[in-house]
């Protein structure tokens, strides 16, 4: 390892899709701190131990934002009895980023049981974030019992339908989708015809060179349908995105980081700030995974994303919460 300048992976996904070996190596690092920087269609991955060697200027982009997910406020089982503390740690971690994110995306399961006080607590903690704007999409836990009425009232008053919307920031088009409502028995996440029609119209006026970021709670790629980790009508949505040169899909729900590149689309799932879940098929069910206390924060985390104009690519960085708590790491992280 010593002779190598950097522990990096290079693969040109614009030519022939994902290099499987590279993908698996990136996966192995997920959760222990991985930095993925994408430039001009080439993805570089760096292990946590190498962050100090990175040049911050190299990481600079014109737009950066952070994703947090699955805060499950109200959860109090052995897998994590302090979801308030871990969400606060995530916010502190985002605040400590050298390049301040413009805004935060929360990809759902804000609350555990859709109780008003759970939403209140999250809102209060997020008020401590340096980035003042937070964009939400609902998780299935946020819409329990009332088909999302409370969620809509709190977070998506000006949105369309059951809470979907789009906005633009520095030339990047962002689309927040809802795939946790009107679920059918035996089925997966669902977008529904109304939302798909809206999406088609929303994207119609954009030039193919516009970078697009789509975010939704349940993965829009089929990760493990046996556990419901997929969206049944996502193929139609992805069809509308085919003509764009750069598409990034950000999801939550599975409480672990995973990444896949398929043609022009980079799929990415974020870690939870509350509790980890098992790898697909590694347990009988996707329930909360209890890990030794000292490992917990290493399996929770945040994602920060940067966009560089002209590069048509986004750099996605996953960080776990252990780093936020380690004074040794303070000031040595380069983004």
């Amino acid at each position: 390892m010593k002779g190598k300048k950097r522990d990096e992976l290079l693969f040109d996904h614009n030519q022939d899709g994902v290099d499987r070996r590279g993908f698996l190596k990136c996966m192995a690092w997920a959760g222990t701190g991985t930095l993925c920087v994408m430039k001009g269609g080439v993805l570089n991955s760096y292990s946590l131990s190498r962050w100090a060697e990175l040049d911050p200027a190299e990481m600079k982009g014109e737009l950066s934002f952070a994703q947090i997910s699955d805060s499950h406020m109200g959860f109090n089982k052995p897998a994590n009895t302090d979801v308030v503390g871990t969400l606060q740690a995530a916010v502190e971690k985002v605040n400590a980023l050298k390049i301040s994110p413009e805004f935060l995306l929360h990809t759902g399961d804000i609350s555990h049981l859709a109780k008003p006080e759970e939403f209140d607590t999250v809102d209060q903690i997020l008020r401590g974030a340096a980035a003042k704007q937070v964009f939400f999409v609902p998780g299935e836990h946020d819409v329990i019992g009332d088909d999302g009425k409370q969620y809509l009232d709190r977070y998506a008053k000006t949105a369309n339908g059951s809470g979907w919307y789009s906005f633009d920031s520095k030339g990047v088009h962002f689309v927040g989708l809802v795939n946790v409502l009107n679920l059918k028995a035996g089925g997966l996440g669902s977008l529904g015809q109304d939302q798909l029609e809206w999406l088609e119209k929303d994207l119609k006026g954009l030039t193919a060179s516009t970078p697009v970021v789509v975010f939704a709670h349940i993965p829009l790629w089929s990760i493990y349908p046996q556990w419901g980790w997929g969206t049944e009508d996502s193929a139609q949505a992805l069809g509308y995105l085919k003509r764009f040169g750069s598409v990034t899909v950000l999801n939550g729900h599975i409480h672990q980081t995973m990444q896949k590149v398929e043609g022009n689309v980079t799929f990415h799932t974020a870690a939870s700030t509350a509790f980890p879940q098992p790898h697909p098929g590694a347990a009988d069910s996707p329930g909360p995974m209890k890990v030794p206390a000292e490992q917990l924060r290493g399996l929770l985390g945040i994602t920060s994303v940067k966009f560089k104009r002209g590069k048509h690519a986004l750099a996605i960085v996953d960080s776990n919460l252990t780093d936020a708590m380690s004074s040794e790491m303070q000031g040595t992280q380069s983004y």
Partner: peptide, 12 residues
């Protein structure tokens, strides 16, 4: 009577 969990619809 068929039923399911509306938040984890794979459960039937």
């Amino acid at each position: 009577y068929s039923y399911f969990c509306s938040i984890h619809p794979k459960m039937t």
